[in-house]
Design a protein around this nucleic acid. Sequence first.
DNA 1: GACATTTCAGTAAT
DNA 2: CATTACTGAAATGT
Length: 697
Amino acid sequence: MEQGGPESIDKSKILEVKPLRCLSPVFTSASGSSVSNPQASSPFHCVPPGGPFPPGLAPIYPFMRSNESQRTGQPYGNDIASPVPLNAFRTPGSAKGGMGRGKRGRPRKVPVGVVGDSGGYSDLMNQSDQNVSGYDVHETDAEDASNSGKRKTRLQKRQSVPISDFDEVGVVNSLLTSFKLMELDIAKNDFGDRELVDRVLLVYDLLRKKIMLHDESRDSLPGVTRRPDLKAGNLLMSKGIRTNNTKKIGHVPGVEVGDIFFFRMELCVVGLHAPTMAGIDYMTVKASADEDPVALSIVSSGGYEDDGEDGDVLIYSGQGGVQRRDGLMFDQKLERGNLALEKSMQRGNEVRVIRGLKDINTTGKIYVYDGLYKIQDSWAETNKTGCNVFKYKLVRVPGQPEAFTLWKLIQRWKDGIASRTGVILPDLTSGAESLPVSLVNDVDDEKGPDYFTYIPTPKYAKPYVLPEPSLGCQCNGGCQPGDVRCSCIQKNMGCLPYNPLAVLMKYQSLIHECGKTCACPSTCRNRMTQVGLKVRLEVFKTKNRGWGLRSWDPIRGGGFICEYAGQVIDASKVGEFESENEDAYIFDSTRIFESLEDPQQNPNESPKAPFPLVINAKLEGNVARFMNHSCSPNVYWQPVLRASDNEAYLHVGFFAIKHIRPMQELTFDYGVLPAHRAQQRRKKCSCGSVKCRGYFY
DNA sequence: GACATTTCAGTAAT
DNA sequence: CATTACTGAAATGT
C-alpha cells in the first residue's frame, strides 16, 4: 500500500484537496442535555419481528437471519453482514456416504465430506445464483469421473477414519459465490492485481476460520482438521481460486513490498511463493541449449541471519542435508533450489525475499515480503556435524519501500534502544488504556489536536431497555468453545465469535458479548472488546489528512483494534451536530455502509446496527476518533451488544478487514448519508484509493 | 516456556 | 500420464 497509498501519492494531487478533518477549534455549546434517552427514538419500530426468537431477545435480533428465514427466503433486513451462511455445517449424523475430498496422489487419511449432494445448501445456492448449482454439479461430476478409479481404495481406508460432518464443498461454494470468485478468468488467474490478491486472501481467511470454528465445535474429536491453514488452501486451490498462477521472476502483481502474511499457504494462493514447505521456489527456464533452474523466491525462517544490524543483507542457507525420518545429517547437494540460487546468481536475476519472523503472540510466524534481492555471493560451509551446507549472500535491491528494516526499527523503539522521532506525548490516554498510545508528529510543527477528554468507553446516559431480560451465561471459568449450554454462545449462533487472540472468526451482523450478569470472568473469550487495546497504537500527523491512527504492531485480518468511545447522543438529533467542521468526530451508525463481502454491489440501504447509534467524540472520546475515512478501508466496524437483565449497551468494535502491516494508517468507511439527508455537506475525499468515491458523508 | 510429536500439501522430477 | 520424492511449519502435547 505504501506505493499507491496516501502517504506517497503525487504531491500535486495532494495540494488540491482539503484535509479530511478540520481541526480548527470550534466550541459549540453542545447543550449538556444532548445526551438523551435513546428510547425516545423508539429504536425498534423499523423492523418487524419475523420469526421465532429466543425469549427476551426478539427486538434486537432483526439483523440476524435464522435458518428458517434463509430457507423461506423471507426478506428480512437484507442481512448485509452475512450472505455466507454462518451455520453452514451439517448437523452430526446427516453426512451420508459420499466420497472423500482427498487429492490425487498418495493415499492418506481422508476427511469425508459430501460431494455431489448439495443437501442443505441447495436452497441457498438457488437463491443466490443459478450458475452456482450448475457449476457445482459440473465440478462434482468431473471429479467423480476422474477419481472413480481410486475411490474404492479410499473408501476402504475410510473405514477407520471418523466421519467428518463438515461439508467442505458447500462451504467453499457459498464463500466463492459471495465473493464473486466462481468465475475467475484465466488471465487474472495468471496475473493478479491488488484487488484480486486482497479478495483471494480474504476468502482464504474466512474459509480457514470456518474450518477452525467447526473443529472447535466438535471439541477436538478425532477426525477433525488439524491444519485448517493447509485445508483451506487445498480447498481453494483445487477449485483454481488463486492468483499469479504462472511463476514469474521479480515482483508479483498485486503483492506489495511490506505486505504481511500469517501462513505459508497465503504466500501460495497469491503466487508469491509456491511451495507449501520448501524455502526455495524455482522454475526451469529454457535457455538456449540447456535448461537452467532459476530461483524465484525464498522464505527465510530467521534462524540463520548472521549479518548483524544491516537489514538489507541476508545470509541464506541452502536446502536439504537432513534426513526427514531420523534427523540424520548429510552433505547438501548442488541441485534443486540450491542449484537454482547458484544459477540466479550467475545470471544476476532478482529473487523475492520473504522474511519469516516469530510472532510474539503465538507459536507461529509472520511473513514479511521484503522485496527483491540479488545474490551477491555463494559458498559452502561445514556445519557442526561436519556436513556440507551451502550459503548465499543476498543484498536488497535499492529504492524499494522499507519493510523488514521497519520491523527492526519498531523493535528498537519498544526495547528503548531507539526513540521514536517526533513524539509529542508518550501516552495521550494518560494511562486510561491497557497500552500507551503515542502522539507523534514528524511531518510539521503542529503540536497536537484540539483538546478533548480521553475516555476509553462510550458514555451512555441510559441503556437501551429490553422488554424481556437477557439471560447471562453460567460459565464460571469463562465461555468455552463447543459448550452448547452457554447462553452467550447460543446468542452468537453456536460459536464463540473470537479466537483467544481477539480475532473475529466470522462475519456476523451482531456480536453478543458477555455482560454484567454473566458468570464468566473478564478474561472470558467472549469479552474481547471489554479488556482494552491489544496493539500498540499511535496517533500521528498525516501529510494531507490531519491526524490519523496507525499501529506499531502487525494486525491479523479480523483482529480487534479498538472501540469507538464518546458521548452517545440521541440519533434523532444527529442533525444538530451535522454542520461544517462540527461533525468530524461523529460516529453515525445510520449512514449507508457498503457490504464488506461485495464492494461492487450497490450499498445496502438497510441499517447496519440493530438500533440507531450515534456517538459524539468531539469533547470526549478515545483513539477511534482519530481514524480517518477511506473508500478502500482496512478496518470495519461491528456492532457489539452487551446485555444484562433488561439493559443493553451497544458498542462499536473496530476490526481489521485484512492483515495490516506496522505503521500503515488505519482507516474505515465513514459511510454515506441517506438521500433524504443533506447531500450538500459532502466532504471531498482524499483517501487516494482507486475506488475513491470522491467524497464522503 | 523450551522442546517433542504429529499432521498436513504443492510441485519438480521421474 | 501417474506416481514419488522433496520440501518445514503449525498446532498440540510434554
